[in-house]
Structure formats: structure tokens, C-alpha cells
Design a binder for these strands. Structure first.
Lengths: 247, 247
DNA sequence: CGAACGTTTGAGATGACTCAAGCGTTGTGG
DNA sequence: CCACAACGCTTGAGTCATCTCAAACGTTCG
């Protein structure tokens, strides 16, 4: 159910059926939240963490003038603010990007199931370390790629993650992000993202229209974005041709 | 000894004396390593982690042409590749930047002390999550600050971390990085870093000469770099005036 | 139907890059 | 102990990628 996609296809960390059941039992509530709603503010003490079931959420830091830099984008199956469990407080904001459905896991409940299942803590730790590995890949993207490369890299990453989640067939997926969202991810302005998308279209690397991303040749896009999926720690890094929803 | 600075001054995660003793007992070896030596390669299975005792180490990802983006800089007290403990393999390289002294902690020894001390794993987890929080601050730096701001932000962060480690008095510290290192940290070229350093000098924000950083007014530098130390999760975020070594 | 939001395009400004050369410092071997 | 090599720092000139500001156009939703 809610945990079906959590740690799915992660090398050596996929959940056992009883671990999955324990987490699902720890869920206190399923909540539907509107798009662009802030659910965690920097500095606010946390009593629960949020497992994303449907939709897209983002974590970001904003500058003095309110311009944002996203630090992470989350898709279904991600344990969005699991970092808040050991840290108690986050130093960044978390917001819904689209409308979402989330499962709320109170930290007290998490403590209980971990007390009974010492191995599970390693998997939760592992999950947060993958987030850290993704942060590093994003640092590479921002520090060393040009605008077209940054967007290409992000789209390759997203494709790989959504394939693992069963939400992309490897060439086509639904992605409800605006060009301004992409700008906040890639450290660009929305105007320039628009020009980058045109470039990608003209080069037949990627077409992104009305929330559908189409990648005719993922390998070529990966070359343009210098994308190497190792940091996602996937069990099956090749596009897996499995039943897929592309709404 | 080797662990004196590990988790020092970290909010709610400082080590208990017995935890400290356990980690020290788990150290299999103290090793001195020359500058610019790669100690972990991406993809290579890890059997131990490295606690930095003296010197500077870096974690980085490089692009197709060999241009590097640093993802982290480590100072004494940092458990450099602790991420490799749950992950088993890292997706990036780790290199000494200066000559260093490190304490080697075999993963089997770590497993043993964790089996006896279930609370310690939370602190190790916490330590890796601070690395992740630092990654996010670096994303902000690269995505939203101009060149002068990036360098200012990095120097503020470094000052704050070194104050916590007892290696800066809040205004002056030793930092054996080259301008090329700064470029690899800030996503710039070494030529441009040179011009940025001149700018910082002319604006009386910071003087960096022969490995000594002097910051006459840390508050002004923090404003220029939009630096907010919350992400370091320090117990005492104000500069602590304690005995300091500035060699 | 209108308002709000997202996309597209243009023109001009600018921050950072590239290439190139000279200078300063440090360490080492003859 | 000197000379030279290696490395890091500094500066200049010209280029280019991305930004800013501005306006128009398209789409969605109430």
C-alpha cells in the first residue's frame, strides 16, 4: 500500500514484508494536501515524518529576496522528511508541489517499531543517505554543468527514479512541474529554462509539454547531462520494462 | 584523543565518555597520508571508515573532462566516509587535500560496538545527516549566490565549523586551501576566485593570504554570503572564545 | 468571461569564462 | 647553497552564457 514504493529497487535495502507491515501499521493518518502548501518550516520541531504516496513534494532554501533553491524533489515512495526523525528539526522548508496524498508516521510510532526491529534502522539510515548522495549529484549539476546540461541531468535522474517507482517506462513519464520549478531546481531563471527546453526540443533530446516528458533516446540525453545513475543505488539500473502508469 | 572533536558541540548529539571510549577502542590504526592522495574511489567496496584527526580532506565528483566539483570539505573531528558504512560503496571519490592524520575504524568493529550500544547508532546517523544538511547549504550557495557570495558563504561556514572544533577564534584561522580548491568548492574557475579574493580584500570583508583567513567583521561577511549557521546544528552558534590553536 | 498563471520571445546588460602571459614562492637535487 | 622546476597567484583582453526587464500570448479554472 503506502509503502509499496519505499526503498523499492534500492540495492540491498528493500523492505521485508514484516518491515513493510510494521511501517504501515505505524501510519497514523492519510492526508490529502493541496498544491503549494508548506508542510514543514525550518526550525519548527517535528513530531512525525511524511511518506509521499501520490504527487510531488520539494525541499528548498530561499534567499534574502525570497528566490528559492530546491534541494530535493520527491516522488511517490519517498520518505520526504525522514531526516527530521534523528535531527528533530529541519533547517529547510518542505512544500507540496502538486496536490499530494501522504501517509503520516508519528515519530513515537517509529521509535516503537525500531525498538522491536533493530535491522530496520539501517534501512531508514540508508534511505536518508541516498538523499545525501542525490544532494551530491545536484552539487555536481549546479557546479559543473551548463544550463542545458543541468536540465538534461535532472530529467535523466527523474526518469531513472520514476522507472524504479514504476512511474516511467524509460522514455515517457508524467511530470507536473512548471518551468519555474525547473529553474528553482537547476539554479536558473524561468526565462532561461524556457530557452533550454526549446534547445532540448530542437536537438531531439527531450520534449516536455503539458506535464509529459518524452525522451526518445535516454542514452543521448544522459551524455548531454553527464548523467551516471550510480548515485541512486538502484538494484536494476537498466530501464525495467514493467507495468507502468502514465496518467 | 582521536574522537575529541567528533560531534563536538552538535546539538543533542555529543558523545558520552563511554561512547567515545568505545569508538577509540574500535580504531585499528592511525595513519599519516600525504597531500592529494585518493583514499576512496567511487564504486570500490569499503571495509572501514576514516575519522579525520588532522588536516583537510575532500569528497568530489568529476566531470567528463576531469573538472572537479567538491561535495564536501572535512576538518579534524569529521567522520569522513561514515556514509560508506551503511551504503557499503560510495558513488564519489575521497581525497586528502593537505597531508593528514586519520584514524581507521573497521566496519566490523563498528558493528560490534553498535550491537552493545543501541543509542550510538542514532548519533552516527545524526552525524551523516549533518553532512546532508551541509550539502543542502552548498546547493543554495551554488544555485543562488554570485561568485563573491559563494566564497563568502564558504568562509563563514568554515569559520563556524572551525570555531566549533576549537580551530578558529572566530576572526582568524588556518586554512590550507589553494584558490583552485576554492574554485572546485564554489563552482568557479581559479582565475575568477582570484578576482573574488581581491574583491573581498578591497571590501575589507576577508583577507586570505598564505593559508591564513582573517575576517575582521564576521557579521558583515555573513550578510554578503547570506550565511545562516542553523544547518550546522551547533549547540553554541555564537563564536565561543576558548583556547584555540592557530598554527 | 475574466483573472491568474504559465509560456514564449526580444533586446540589452553583465558576470563569469577562456586564453595567455608574467610574477612569486617553495622545495629539491646538483 | 644555488638554480631551476613546479606550483600557485595575479593581471589583461576578449568572448559568451545567462540574467534582467518587458511585453505578448496561451491555457486553465472559477
Amino acid at each position: 500500500m503506502f509503502t509499496d514504493r519505499f526503498l523499492r529497487d534500492k540495492r540491498g535495502a528493500a523492505l521485508e514484508p514484516d518491515e513493510r507491515a510494521a511501517i504501515e501499521a505505524a501510519v497514523s493518518e492519510i492526508r490529502d494536501i493541496a498544491a503549494r502548501t508548506t508542510i514543514v518550516r525550518a526550525g519548527q520541531p517535528l513530531r512525525h515524518s511524511t511518506l509521499l504516496v501520490e504527487g510531488i513534494m520539494s525541499r528548498y532554501i530561499d534567499d534574502r529576496e525570497g528566490v528559492r533553491q530546491l534541494a530535493a524533489v520527491h516522488f511517490p515512495g519517498d520518505f520526504v522528511d525522514l531526516h527530521g526523525f534523528p535531527l528533530k528539526v529541519l533547517e529547510h522548508d518542505v512544500q507540496t508541489t502538486t496536490s499530494v496524498r501522504v501517509a503520516i508516521v508519528p515519530h513515537v510510532a517509529l521509535e516503537q517499531i525500531l525498538a522491536e526491529r533493530p535491522q530496520l534502522i539501517r534501512k531508514l539510515w540508508f534511505a536518508t543517505l541516498i538523499d545525501a548522495a542525490v544532494h551530491r549529484a545536484w552539487l555536481f549539476r549546479l557546479g559543473r554543468l551548463d544550463a542545458v546540461g543541468r536540465v538534461a541531468h535532472f530529467l535523466c535522474e527523474t526518469n531513472a527514479r520514476l522507472v524504479a517507482a514504476g512511474l516511467s517506462d524509460g522514455h515517457r513519464f508524467n511530470l507536473a512541474l512548471t518551468q519555474t520549478d525547473l529553474a528553482e531546481i537547476c539554479g536558473l531563471t524561468n526565462v532561461h529554462v524556457n530557452r533550454v527546453m526549446r534547445q532540448l526540443r530542437e536537438d531531439r533530446l527531450c520534449v516536455f509539454r503539458s506535464s509529459i516528458v518524452e525522451i526518445p533516446d535516454p542514452e543521448r540525453l544522459a551524455v548531454r547531462g553527464q548523467f551516471n545513475p550510480d548515485y541512486l543505488y538502484l538494484e536494476h539500473p537498466e530501464p525495467v520494462m514493467s507495468p507502468v502508469e502514465v496518467p
